[in-house]
């Protein structure tokens, strides 16, 4: 084992630093190659385009999840935060084309999601509740609020603009992909080139040293969780557009999948290391994997077992390497 890892020790070369990214992209190629041999339609333009749109939905939730996990936290509240925002969105707008309703519905949905994220951040940073507990509790609160607000049956229709965003195309390219590209550039810029991004990594690696260097640790954490909420809100608008309405449980799948996308993308679950580039690959991997499992004929139960298994394997692999490096 020791000699093997010595031989594979790429150290500080580009390959060494980005090994997890390479593994993930390799997995994508493997999935495409293997499935393509079995079923040429799988790698056809139509299917790939559709799968990338699904990856865009997941990638949007996972954008916030990436930021939160980089601080060493986790956001389990995305499911019902997303769902509540989606319902606010469709019930306020209800298919209307009036500018006032569109603006107020969109603003309300995004604001609500951001406020929920903010509350998560305050719980974690100020009240010092562990992120796992805080966001899990928040998820339950949002579930309850949603049931009270909808009386159990959500109403309303998504407006045309969100339907276009989710299923429309621009010169053959889905709008959802254009949106994801813009979002991706924005998140990478935020992490690499802004004061906030620098502080985020610093706090994720070592909150104590950051505090002693005068970094506003609490404000950074609260802002991060707020952005996590906002990304759930954006995903809510995309998803209502895709299904034309909102329904109970529409966010459920995204908790595990968004965490999986981040972890498979090589971001350390301990915080401080990683980035959104990996998460994009992770989201595509998950969506393709899910698609492949469907094509092969594995039922949702089996799919869940596989996601869970993959996350655990990835945690084992990355957790180990992180400890070895310390």
């Amino acid at each position: 084992m020791a000699t093997l890892s010595n031989r594979l020790d790429l150290g500080d070369t580009w390959l060494g630093r980005n090994r997890s990214l390479l593994i993930t992209y390799g997995l994508i190629v493997l999935l495409l190659g293997g499935m393509g041999l079995r079923d040429p339609d799988f790698v056809g333009l139509g299917n790939l385009r559709q799968q990338l749109v699904f990856a865009a939905f997941l990638g949007t939730v996972a954008a916030g999840q990436t930021l939160v996990i980089l601080t060493g936290g986790i956001d389990l509240s995305v499911a019902w935060n997303l769902n509540f925002a989606a319902i606010l969105f469709t019930q306020t707008i209800d298919g209307s084309q009036s500018a006032g309703r569109l603006v107020s519905g969109t603003a309300l949905a995004l604001l609500a999601a951001t406020v929920v994220g903010c509350a998560n951040g305050i719980g974690v940073a100020v009240l010092r509740i562990p992120p796992l507990v805080m966001t899990l509790g928040m998820n339950a609160v949002m579930l309850g609020l949603t049931l009270v607000y909808t009386n159990g049956s959500p109403q309303g229709l998504a407006p045309a603009f969100s339907r276009d965003l989710a299923i429309g195309r621009l010169a053959g390219v889905p709008w959802a992909l254009v949106f994801w590209l813009v979002l991706g550039v924005g998140v990478v810029f935020l992490l690499r080139r802004t004061v906030f991004g620098r502080r985020l990594y610093a706090v994720g690696y070592n909150p104590r040293a950051s505090y002693l260097a005068g970094v506003p640790v609490r404000a950074t954490l609260v802002a991060t969780y707020a952005l996590g909420g906002l990304s759930a809100g954006l995903a809510a608008i995309l998803l209502t557009g895709y299904s034309s309405n909102s329904y109970l449980g529409m966010g459920d799948a995204y908790v595990l999948q968004s965490i999986a996308a981040v972890v498979i993308g090589g971001t350390s679950i301990l915080g401080g290391a990683g980035g959104y580039g990996g998460t994009i690959a992770g989201a595509i991997t998950i969506v393709l994997l899910q698609n492949a499992l469907q094509v092969i004929g594995i039922r949702p139960a089996g799919q869940n077992i596989l996601y869970g298994g993959i996350i655990l394997v990835m945690l084992f692999v990355y957790g180990r390497s992180a400890r070895v490096r310390e």
């Binding site: 620098r198 950051s210 002693l212």
Partner: peptide, 17 residues
Amino acid sequence: TQALILPLPVRDNLTLP
């Protein structure tokens, strides 16, 4: 553990405050 953030570059450590 208190003065530096070890995995970050020298530059990031220098300009953090």
